[in-house]
Structures are given as C-alpha cells and as structure tokens.
Design a protein around this nucleic acid. Structure first.
Lengths: 349, 349
DNA sequence: CAATTTTTGAGGTGCGCAACACAAATTCTG
DNA sequence: CAGAATTTGTGTTGCGCACCTCAAAAATTG
C-alpha cells in the first residue's frame, strides 16, 4: 500500500510567501495581482516563493475582499415546450446556487424565434450585467446585438442554440450535426438491413439546431444505410396537434415507413398517431430531449431512443463560464463540454 | 417580453437581518447558528426577518471565519487499467479544485481486490480525515472497516464499486444492473432478430460490479431476445493477453457467435482477436468505459458501443458529497446522480 | 420585592485577501 | 553628489461572518 503521507495541511498565505521571498506583503500583492512598479528581479524572487510554497490565492477570501458581485442575465424563450420549461427551472436552481457565490441571475423571457424581438431584448439589456447567456438565433440582427454587447465589455455565451459567427465567448450546447448523426446510426442499426423509408420531422427549418440535426441525420443515413431512404423533411412547428396530423398522414401514405426521426418537439402528437395506428412497436421512433412525456413513451416502448442534452448541466455550465470569464479565471473545457446523451428504456436516470 | 426587473443586487447581511428583526447581531448569530439561550419568540422574529430578506449566509465568508479546512482521503486501486488511471487523474484534478475551497485530498493506492489489504488500509487511515472515498469491495471485513470509520464520525462514500450493506453515506457510481440491461438492449437491437450466440466476458465474478452487469445483461437478453443465447460467462481478469486468447477461442469454436459483451477491461485483447479473425465488422461488440483504446476501436468500427461512467463526474461528485456532509450542507441529488452514458462513434465527446 | 436565572446587547478579534496612502530605501539622472 | 525617479516597506481599512467575553436588561422565582 502506498500512502500519500499526511502532510501539514495548512494553506500557504500571502504572508508566508512574503516571508519566504524576504519581501513585504505589499510587494507580494503587487506581483500576484500584476500591478506596476516591481523590479523584474524581485518579481522572480516572489514567483519562486509562490511556486515553492504552492501558494494559491484563497478565492473565497479574495472575492470577499474585493466585494465582487456578478450580475448575469439569462435570455430564454417564452415558449412552453417541455425542454424549455425544464431549462428555465434549471436556470432558477443555478441562480439559487450562484447566490451563495455572490452572483445574481435575472431571467428574461422573450420570443427568441423572432430575430427582431430577440435582438431588441439584447439591445435593451441593462449595462449593469457583466454576463449574458442567450438562447440565440443565427440571424444578422441577433449577431449584431451580441457583438454589440461584447463590444461593451459584457461576456456573452450562447445557450442550446448558437450564433457561430458572432463574437460570443462560448457556445454551451451540443454539437447538433453530431446529434443527428447519432440518431441516424441508431436508426440504421435498429433497422438492421430492413428496407423502407424514414421520415424526418423538424420543428422549423429556420432553426439552426433543427437544420443541423437533420443534416447530420441525412449525411449518415445516405452514406451508410442505403437500404433506407429518407422522405422530405416535414415541419411540425414543435406543435403536438400538428405533428399528430402529419404523423397520421405519413403512416397512412407510407406502408413501408420504418422509422421516424424527430429533431424537435411535438412528441405527444407523434406518440398518439403511432399508437392510434397500432404501429408503435414496428416503427422505430427516435427523438430529442428527455421530458416527462418522452420518458413515458420510452418506458412504454413506443419510443425507441432519446437523444438528450442535460439542461441542468447547460445552465450551470453557462453560469460557470460567465463567472470565470468575468473574474479572469480559467475554465476546464471537458467539464463544460455538453454531451450528447443517449437514453434507452434501460439507462433512464 | 417579460423582463425580470433589475432589483437592488446587494445581498442581505447578518446586520440587515438584525436591523429588520430589531435585535442585535449577537442574537441573530445565536439563532442562525442554532446556539442556546434565545427565547422562542425572539427566534421566531429573527427567522421571519431572515425569510423576509431572503438572507443566506455567504458561505465563503463563513468558511473563512470558521477557518474550516477539510481533509479527505481517496482510496483507489493500484491496478493500472485505463479506467482506473483516468479516475486517478480526475481525482488529482478534483484535488486541485478543492484546494481553492479549503479542502485537501490525499490519495492512497491499495490493492482493492484483496479484502484484507483494503480493510487494513481503511483501518489504518489517519483519524484526521473528515471524509473518505473508497473504491469498495463488498466483503464482510471491508464492510466492517467502513462501519468503523463511520462510527468514528468519518463520512464514507463508496466510489465506482459499492458495499451496499455498509453504513456508507452515499454510493457514487452507476447502477450496474441497469448498465448491463442497457448493453443487452443495444445488443439485441443491433442484432435485430438474427439468431446465434452471444459471449459475455467479465473481469472476475467476484467483483460485484461485473456480476451485477452480467446479471442485468442476461436478464434482458433471455426475456426479450429469444433469438440469442448467451454462452457461459468467461473470466478475463481484466487482462488483455488473456482476453485475446479467450476471444480467439470463442471465435474459433462458435461460428454462430454474433455478439460479445465485455463487462470489464482487457479490451485491447478482444479487439486484436476480432480483427485477426476478420470478424470485427460482423460481430457486435459492446464494452464498458471510454478510454483512448475503446475510443479508437469505436472510430474504427471494431467496437459498436461503449457504456461509460464519467470518471471526472464521479471524482467531483464524491468530493462534493463528502464536503457537503462534513459541513452539514444539503446536496442536490440529480446533480450527483452518475449517468450511464452510451457512446457510439457519432457522439464521442 | 429582592434574589436569581435567563435572555439580550455591545463590543472585540481574526480569517485571507485587496486596495490604498504614505514613508523609506534604493536606483538612476545630469 | 545632489536631486529626481523608481522601487519597496509599513500600515490601515474593510469584506461578512463565527466565536468569544462581559455587562445590561428582562423574566422568573421564592
């Protein structure tokens, strides 16, 4: 047995560093906080002492002394689909956690599907915010609004849906083309060589994430599963009534329909139609986002797989990244990477 | 657009509460820290003020004032398989993070597969630790050692591998039977009705997690996929040389071998044997833990799916839970729940 | 009502750090 | 080598809280 021997546990303080370097507290402070007016030679001496003692500022004490507080704005859709509801709830929880870290979150609900409204909301945001997380739309006006915020020194992260060409500091969300490819691989493998058609239902093709998903899906399906042919993409507008009708039509029209990939919301409609037609077991259905409904369909066997992004992780990650950015701390990339979760009936959380 | 109006952002302090309740700072302190000697009526007044102002102690300031530091021990296997290496690394990173939260982690490496050695290591642990995370073994001596630590007031969490009947405060790891069921569903669906046999390779059946996984696997395979019959479990001892030989034998002996489920390590051996036999594409192979090797096999198409537990998440979660337990703070269960990740070639992180 | 007990208040200290003012020491100029 | 400029030291304050002491006030008792 190798024991990491029990060492003295006290943290080195600024004072320890000062003593070790043979300089005063003020000088150490100047060095560690990169202030002016210290000779290079002295800087080196202090830095050597820092390294030797393994000094690391107690960030809690530092924040306390600075009296820093952070104000963040989360701009979320007014829409009421399950995923966005869950995201809103997770943002609230994150706010709760952040409050104990001297951070404060205001949530603004806007119609993010209207570029002008969204851009307007961003433009009117109080300059008191140090950071903004926004479920973005990839549109020139929105892009400009984001760039404008960044130019004013406000850190912006895009959440769930990106605006890649803007100057946001980070995108917190999944790789949507990869998510689509994942869905296609599951579809192809679950259908294992059977011939037939596969339908793709998107919310709207003007949504970047839906477009990217169906792009990834088609990419893999056409290159690897020639036994399956994809039907033209249908826009369900994330609305269950509409998807119910559309799915019913699909089922009526295509006797050889083997699979449905839904890269948006409106899942209740799809489930209804599949079950009404009695083809729930036979048709492979894959969709996005784990909600109370998709969970139920999964357990029941109507739904075969869910591609999910963890809303809680996204909310926390956005907050952490904004905070780190504001206080110049580093972030650890692989803790912040949002994974593409696959859920089957068996590995539901 | 609904704007969460910009409110005053200052946190309420103890002094604010004192003023609002019309009592002194000392009394508020007595109430919030549950000290003796305050009339019930006064307690109620203070608590009302706390609620009204939404007062929450600044935990950073509180920790600073208390001068609290935490000492945690992580007891990890000496073994060198990729997953454990990665776990060790993630524990080191967690230690780094924790150091800025006034927490200190010592790592002890022991042969966790020998119950006596493991129990001995736990028994000899310095009483200076406030918390211990251990990759456990479900064995009476180990159980007793854990119970003993808990009896001495040391919080214990089991990590990756549980000792369910002990008095550990938490198990940080995946639901292994569910992981096995997940593997079986993937196997059954990828093979979609084809007839044949499926091999199961475990590290050792005396390891609780491996046993549980193969249990879950068999459960689903036998109840839902009658077209597939499982061969007797093979013990590969997590050793690539051995698994290579065993896999080669399997392939030679069973022309109708359709799938391999490996619920332990030794994946390089399996990959070698599959590729050497030229049956890498045809045989569905599912294994556990995403490592540099399994990632490569996945990309190459030799491996079909990986069931993974996130070592980084586990390390951080164990530390957070121990810390919360030591300082009497609550934990948020769904942030600490370790998920059963499924990785295909397409959703690799 | 005095004596006793319980409750409350006032005040101080220190945790580790940031931020600042000002004096002292050191170096650099002409 | 005086004077100026630069570098370093000393010292203080306060962030929000925990924890302690001692005295004052209030409630309870005989």
């Amino acid at each position: 047995m190798t024991a990491g021997a029990i060492q003295p546990v006290m943290r080195a303080t600024l004072e320890d560093v000062a003593r070790a370097a043979g300089v005063s507290l003020a000088t150490v402070d100047r060095v560690v906080n990169r202030r002016e007016g210290v000779r290079a030679k002295t800087v080196a001496r202090v830095e050597a002492a820092v390294a030797k003692l393994g000094y690391r500022a107690d960030i809690a004490a530092a924040r306390l002394a600075r009296g820093q507080t952070f104000r963040l704005a989360f701009v979320l859709p007014t829409g009421s689909n399950s995923f966005m509801t869950s995201l809103t709830e997770q943002v609230a929880r994150t706010a709760d956690w952040l409050a104990s870290q001297r951070g404060f979150i205001d949530v603004h609900h806007v119609d993010v599907f209207d570029p002008d409204v969204l851009a307007g909301a961003l433009e009117n945001l109080s300059p008191a915010y140090q950071g903004v997380a926004v479920v973005a739309l990839d549109h020139p006006r929105v892009r400009a609004a984001i760039d404008d915020l960044v130019a004013r020194g406000i850190a912006v992260v895009t959440l769930v849906s990106d605006a890649p060409s803007s100057s946001r500091v980070h995108y917190v969300g999944i790789d949507n083309p990869a998510a689509g490819r994942t869905a296609a691989t599951l579809m192809g493998r679950f259908l294992a060589g059977r011939e037939g058609t596969v339908a793709v239902i998107a919310g709207s093709l003007s949504l970047r994430d839906h477009t990217e998903r169906q792009f990834g899906f088609h990419q893999i399906l056409s290159s690897e599963y020639s036994n399956l042919s994809a039907l033209p993409v249908i826009e369900g507008r994330d609305d269950s009534d509409r998807t119910r009708k559309l799915t019913a039509e699909l089922l009526a029209r295509h006797a050889d329909l083997r699979g449905i990939y839904c890269c948006g919301a409106g899942n209740r409609g799809i489930a209804d139609a599949l079950e009404a037609a009695g083809r729930a077991r036979e048709v492979v259905w894959i969709t996005h986002e784990l909600t109370e409904y998709t969970r139920r369909f999964l357990v029941r066997g109507t739904l075969d797989a869910v591609i999910n992004q963890d809303a809680g992780h996204e909310a926390r990650s956005a907050a952490r990244i904004l905070l780190a950015h504001c206080s110049g701390e580093p972030i650890s990339p692989d803790q912040e990477r949002i994974r593409i979760d696959i859920f089957l009936r068996d590995n539901l959380p």
